[in-house]
Simulated assay, not measured.
Amino acid sequence: VANRGEIACRIFRTCADLGIRTVAVHSDADENALHARVADTAVRLPGSTPADTYLRGDLVVKAAVNAGADAVHPGYGFLSENADFARAVIDAGLVWIGPPPEAIEAMASKTRAKELMGIAPLGEVTESDLPVLVKAAAGGGGRGMRIVRRLDELAAALDGARAEAASAFGDGEVFVEPYLERGRHVEVQILADTHGTVWPLGTRDCSLQRRHQKVIEEAPAPGLPEVLVKELHALAVRAARSVAYVGAGTVEFLVADGRAHFLEMNTRLQVEHPVTEAVFDLDLVAEQIRIAEGHTLPLDPPPARGHAIEARLYAEDPARDWAPQTGTLHRLAVPDSVRL
């Protein structure tokens, strides 16, 4: 597993259920981390920073080969949406548990993804187009993003977004799209096999955000008309088919005025995948592995039942304007009725 921490542990848990032996990679700083202890084998990546370890695809591939692994799961984050890393894994004779590199590449740029969906970005912005959103073509998390409500603010917003995007993602490309004031952030989990079957697995609502970071995610998205859910599913399947997608992925939308507006496609498993698993009684990591082994999905997904909510916990310092802060968690109390 080309990842660390909770992400790696989550994948190891499924592998243990399937009887698959696992290999962890760890930096020097993570030598005694949980993910390095629960795997069957742990391989050191010399160095302490992510740039020197977990983001070094060549070292990760070498570790997998030397440990005798036959497949690599990227988890989410780090190299999970890196097409070159996917190619390096495949070129090393290992099974890549993820979408084809070409699909990752096609959806990596939000502008390219929109082109595939037949959506053209705004050209010359006029007063009637306002408000608009300047957005980085690569990356996410709210970086390289500016809301523009006045035309005289546009040039500065473009310059600022370009600089931030270049610093954060190494790519300064930005684009402009209409800004939907009261849109809901709704996404569709998809699962696709190598035989042409694509499952749209319900909806997730991720509208409750702070600083463009998701806080609460729930499945299914409440209050959506059935006709709109069908439209979201059809668009998600269309996005997957447009790049011959394989494996698990997420298609994200803004929903406003009863319409679905395509945002992007994340070519990996997402943090909020457990709410979909709970509603569909599926293990998405197990499905990823089976798909990588060549298994065929049934024509229709299992029926959805119930409702699931996930809350993200953020460690922040209120005395420093809520800046991110690390520290020791001394106690966590969870009611017995809550499923972890």
Results as ranks from 00 to 15, higher is better:
Ala2Asn: 05
Ile7Ser: 09
Ala8Cys: 15
Ile11Asn: 09
Phe12Tyr: 13
Leu18Asp: 12
Leu18Thr: 10
Gly19Gln: 00
Ala24Lys: 01
His26Tyr: 14
Asp30Ile: 11
Arg37Ser: 13
Gly47Val: 14
Pro50Gly: 03
Leu55Gln: 02
Leu55Phe: 05
Ala63Tyr: 04
Ala69Ile: 13
Tyr76Gln: 10
Ser80Thr: 13
Asp84Phe: 04
Asp84Cys: 04
Pro100Ser: 00
Ala106Asp: 00
Ser109Met: 01
Lys110Gln: 03
Lys114Arg: 10
Glu115Gly: 11
Thr126Asn: 09
Val134Glu: 00
Met145Ile: 15
Arg150Met: 00
Leu158Lys: 10
Ala161Met: 03
Asp171Leu: 01
Gly172Glu: 02
Val176Arg: 10
Pro178Ser: 12
Glu181Lys: 14
His185Ser: 02
His185Trp: 00
Val188Ile: 14
Gly196His: 13
Val198Glu: 11
Ser207Met: 13
Ile216Trp: 03
Leu232Glu: 04
Arg241Leu: 12
Ser242Thr: 11
Tyr245Met: 01
Val246Tyr: 12
Val246Cys: 14
Gly249Thr: 04
Gly249Lys: 06
Val251Ile: 09
Glu252Ile: 03
His261Trp: 11
Asn266Arg: 06
Leu269Asn: 11
Thr276Pro: 05
Glu277Gln: 08
Glu277Gly: 10
Phe280Thr: 11
Asp281Ile: 04
Leu284Met: 00
Ala292Ile: 08
Thr296Ser: 14
Arg305Asn: 11
His307Thr: 14
Glu310Thr: 07
Ala323Tyr: 09
Gly327Thr: 08
Leu332Arg: 13
Ala333Met: 13
